[in-house]
Nucleic acid binder design. Structure first.
Lengths: 259, 259
DNA sequence: CGTGCTCTACTACCATACCAGAATACGAGA
DNA sequence: TCTCGTATTCTGGTATGGTAGTAGAGCACG
């Protein structure tokens, strides 16, 4: 076991109530996936600030695990465009790249439009009911000011569409990409699109699907996905330190440069 | 250094001319990505047979590296749906799942259609020229019976479309997914779609893009992507041992089963 | 006082060691 | 001969040691 003295000096993590509160070794299952989810959530929520540098050993000490699972988590987070691993130099939490966010939306929109068109064309049995249930739950969450709960239900809504046509893989493939957009969403809680408006858009999508209106469903989905990022320019201005400077170069894309 | 005796007994790898011919330690750069590419190619080409079991230690010995880079490669190959890592039981090369291939095509088609539509709508400068060059090179490769070379040029063609509209990320995101389809393509060299026909389709796509015919470009792209898998049912029948049995259950999707 | 060099303190990467669980080989008993 | 319990030997997961390489601080020199 590693020496795990408190020594909270120079901690990049919020360390508000002791970061290692979530026990990884105690609970069941492999710790590598647990650590991955934990770190991703930490970054997406903005608790681990963009630009701050982390290290395998640092995180390993902090959570009382070895460097091995940390390394695996780092690699996946790099693929998701949240970290940049620079060999022998350090690993840095990437600032949000506006370009990367739009790239993610482009791919997500392409896939989700195809999904929702197929839904409207096939009108699979039970889907309309499922969507209605989710929308009802979303209204409840919105009423109770339960923002995190709403985000989970929002995900469930989109997943339900893919599952409806037997293409749950389509949503799985988007999950890695979605992280980029999620970071913006968490920043945009302050004065972004009100939840009732998002619910209204969900209802429009579900309605078009139930009616078998293919083109209408596509239009509704596109509007919805663009709405999510409508506040992006304003957010980027409000939090300049969270975002990559303007230039088009995106370090996240280049996984292996030929020097 | 690990004892690396020849002992070719019970080798799952073809071992035709000594598998470790490709030196990993000598050449430059981190060996983990190199090993990943090498293993992926080995699986996609069918040199490592579906259903065969591999182990971290086995591969590590074979290529004269430690288990660490092998492990990282395994993880990524699992995400790509090529391997199934079963803790404490073994890692198996997954058979091709027809469902998974169609899932991959669904996502790829959705993204590539969006790309090609944007290309036709924007008609970015220089793209038409680039596509024409690639098609010319493809004709040369097809004439010289250079199948692997043609596949590389085919990839370059699709990547060029994404790059044309400044969405190279779209192609990057597809690379992991594409592996499923590539496996089929390598099996289908025997009596599949003749290369001239594929080139004709490329020309149709490029022509529609150059003409700014958005819908026509979409149609051409869809036809092209479906053509690639046109021989799938026949291939699956011809190589039953390479494919997952009929039932809809796809082991590739379930990353963590709850036993 | 300004500038170049060395040397230290990190980093990620790779290799090795240890562990718990799963599958199988095997032998005793019926 | 067949069945069941046990021991061995695999597996992947985790922990830890070692190495090449980079960034930056401190010192020598102009």
């Amino acid at each position: 076991m590693i020496e795990r003295g408190p020594e909270p000096a120079a901690s990049a993590l919020p360390a508000g109530r002791g970061a290692a509160q979530v026990s990884l070794t105690d609970s069941a299952g492999p710790i590598a996936p647990q650590l991955l989810r934990l770190l991703r959530e930490t970054i997406v929520k903005g608790e681990l600030l963009p630009g701050s540098i982390v290290s395998e050993a640092d995180i390993a000490r902090r959570y009382g695990v070895s460097r091995q699972p940390v390394r695996e988590a780092f690699i996946k987070l790099q693929e998701a465009g949240l970290l940049s691993i620079r060999p022998q130099r350090g690993t840095v939490v990437l600032r949000i790249s506006v370009d990367a966010v739009y790239d993610a939306r482009f791919v997500r929109e392409a896939v989700e439009v195809a999904v929702v068109r197929a839904c409207a064309a096939q009108r699979p049995e039970g889907l309309a009911r499922r969507l209605a249930d989710l929308i009802a739950a979303q209204e409840e969450a919105a009423g109770g000011d339960n923002a995190p709960g709403f985000l989970r239900l929002d995900e469930a809504f989109h997943r339900a569409l893919a599952e409806g046509i037997g293409r749950s893989f389509a949503w799985t493939a988007l999950e890695a990409i979605k992280a980029q957009m999620d970071r913006v969403r968490f920043l945009s809680f302050e004065g972004a699109t009100p939840l009732p408006e998002l619910i209204r858009q969900h209802r429009a999508i579900a309605g078009a699907v139930a009616a078998g209106a293919v083109d209408e469903a596509e239009t509704a989905m596109r509007a919805h996905l663009r709405e999510i990022l409508a506040s992006l320019p304003r957010i980027a201005q409000a939090h300049p330190d969270y975002f990559e400077p303007a230039p088009g170069g995106r370090a996240a894309t280049r996984k292996e440069d030929t020097p």
